[in-house]
Design a protein around this nucleic acid. Structure first.
Lengths: 226, 226
DNA sequence: TAATTATTTAATTCTAGAATGAAATATATA
DNA sequence: TATATATTTCATTCTAGAATTAAATAATTA
C-alpha cells in the first residue's frame, strides 16, 4: 500500500545519522562508507547498516572501486526530498535568524573545493554572459577574452590546462537547481577569492560570507551585485 | 547549528504517526486532533503529543473553534517537503508497479468533495480554455456559454448560484502545483461524474479510477484525453 | 446543573531499532 | 607471503522516544 511505503521512506530519511549522510551527499559527490560514518558521527558498522538500508530503498547507489565503496544519490528525487526538508529549517517559530529568508548556507557555500549556492551560480552566469567561458559539450571552454580576464584576475590558466583534472565543467547546484562552475578553474577562482579576502570560510561549515572588499571587487571585475 | 535543525525536522517528519498525519493534511484541509488520531491509527493522547511537537516546530498551525482544535499546515513548504518524500515512493528497486510513473493517487483523486490531481487540473484548464469559466479576482465566474454547457451536462447552475457556498474557486493542487476547481460547481461536476460512472471511487482511499465510458465522454464533452 | 465530548498533561512502561563488540570478508600494499 | 585498511555480518545490549494509564481541563449539550 502507498501509505506504508511513505512511512518507510520517511522513517529512513528521518533517522539522525541517515539524514546527516544524505545532507553530506547534497553536493552530488560520492563518498565512502568511512567518510560518511565520520560526517554522521557514527561507527563504521552503524554507517554500513544505515547505508545498506538506503541502498535497499533505492535512495543511494554504490559504485565499487577496489576496497572502497562509493555512495551517492540513486536519483535526483532524493536531493529534492532532502532539499524539501532543508527548506523547512530556516523559519521556525522561535527564529533567531533575521530578515533574510535564504539561510546563508544556500546563499553562498563551498561545494568540495569551489563556490556553490546562489553566489556560485551568479558568478558562473556572469562568466558565460561576458563570454569568458562558453559551453562546449558537457564542459566549458575558455575564450581568448577569458584568457585575458583570468590573467588580469591573477590566475595562470596555462598551468591549469596542463593538469589531468577537468578545467571547467558545470556542477548541478541543488539549492539553485542550476549549474555552477567546477573543475580546476573553479578551484583557482575560489582560492584567489579566499586569499584576496573577498569571501571568508565560516568555521565548521561549508558556508561562505562575502566581505565588503569582496562585494566591491565582484562588482568591479564582473559587474555582480550580491 | 543548521545541521541540528535539519536532524530535528527530519526526525519529526520521519515518525510513522506524524508522516501519516502530514499525508492526511496534504489536501490542504484542516483536521481535528481526533480525526488525525484516527487516520494515523494512534490514541488521542499520542496524537496530541505528536501534533504539539509539529506545532512547536512550526510545521502545523492550530485554529481553535469551540472544543475543537483544527490543525493544518503552517506554511506551503511543509507540503513541498511531504511531496518530496512522496515522490520517492513510486520507483523503489523492488517495484511491482507497472509502466506509469505517476502513482494513481497523484494522478486522479478527490480533494474533499471534488476532483483533484492531474485529472482535476486538466478539467479545470479545459473549462477555462473553452471559456465556460473565466478568472475573476480570486474566484471563477461562469460565462453564458458556460451556462449552456453545464445545462447540457446536467447541472442546474441556477440552484448552485443561490447557495451560500462559493460557486467556483481555485484550489491549489499540491501534486500538480497548480489550481484545480473547487466550490459547489466542482462538487456538482464530481457527483455527476460518479453517478454517470465516468470515474469510480477506490475503497478506503481518495484515489479515483477513470472508466472506459468516462474516457470516451471526457473526450466528447471537453476534448480531454487522459 | 450533570453528563458528554474533545483535548491535554504527567508519570510510567515498553519497544523498535540503533549502537556495540567480535569476527569475517575482501582488497591493497609491502 | 604477511599486514594493514575498508567494509560487512551477526549476536547482543542499550536507549530515545512512543505508547499507555490515569487524571485534569474545557467547551458543549441535555
Amino acid at each position: 500500500m502507498e501509505l506504508e511505503k511513505l512511512v518507510h521512506i520517511a522513517g529512513l530519511i528521518g533517522e539522525p545519522a541517515r539524514i546527516k549522510m544524505l545532507w553530506t551527499l547534497m553536493d552530488g559527490k560520492a563518498y565512502t562508507a568511512t567518510e560518511l560514518a565520520l560526517f554522521a558521527e557514527v561507527s563504521p558498522q552503524s554507517a554500513s547498516a544505515h547505508l545498506g538500508k538506503m541502498v535497499q530503498a533505492n535512495l543511494l547507489k554504490v559504485s565499487c572501486q577496489g576496497r572502497h565503496r562509493y555512495f551517492s544519490y540513486a536519483r535526483d528525487e532524493v536531493a529534492y526530498a532532502v532539499e524539501g526538508m532543508a527548506n523547512l529549517i530556516s523559519l521556525q517559530k522561535d527564529k533567531l535568524i533575521p530578515a533574510t529568508k535564504d539561510f546563508p548556507f544556500r546563499y553562498c557555500r563551498t561545494c568540495y573545493d569551489h563556490i556553490a549556492g546562489r553566489a556560485g551560480v551568479v558568478i558562473t552566469d556572469r562568466l558565460l554572459m561576458l563570454e569568458y567561458l562558453v559551453e562546449k559539450g558537457d564542459a566549458y571552454a575558455m575564450t581568448a577574452q577569458g584568457q585575458t580576464f583570468f590573467k588580469d584576475f591573477g590566475i595562470d590558466t596555462d598551468v591549469l590546462l596542463k593538469l589531468r583534472r577537468p578545467f571547467a565543467r558545470p556542477c548541478l547546484d541543488w539549492s539553485e537547481r542550476r549549474s555552477h562552475l567546477a573543475g580546476s578553474l573553479a578551484t583557482a577562482i575560489f582560492e584567489k577569492i579566499i586569499t584576496e579576502d573577498w569571501m571568508r570560510k565560516v568555521q565548521h561549515s561549508r558556508t561562505l560570507s562575502i566581505t565588503a572588499k569582496g562585494q566591491l571587487n565582484l562588482y568591479e571585475t564582473l559587474g555582480i551585485e550580491i
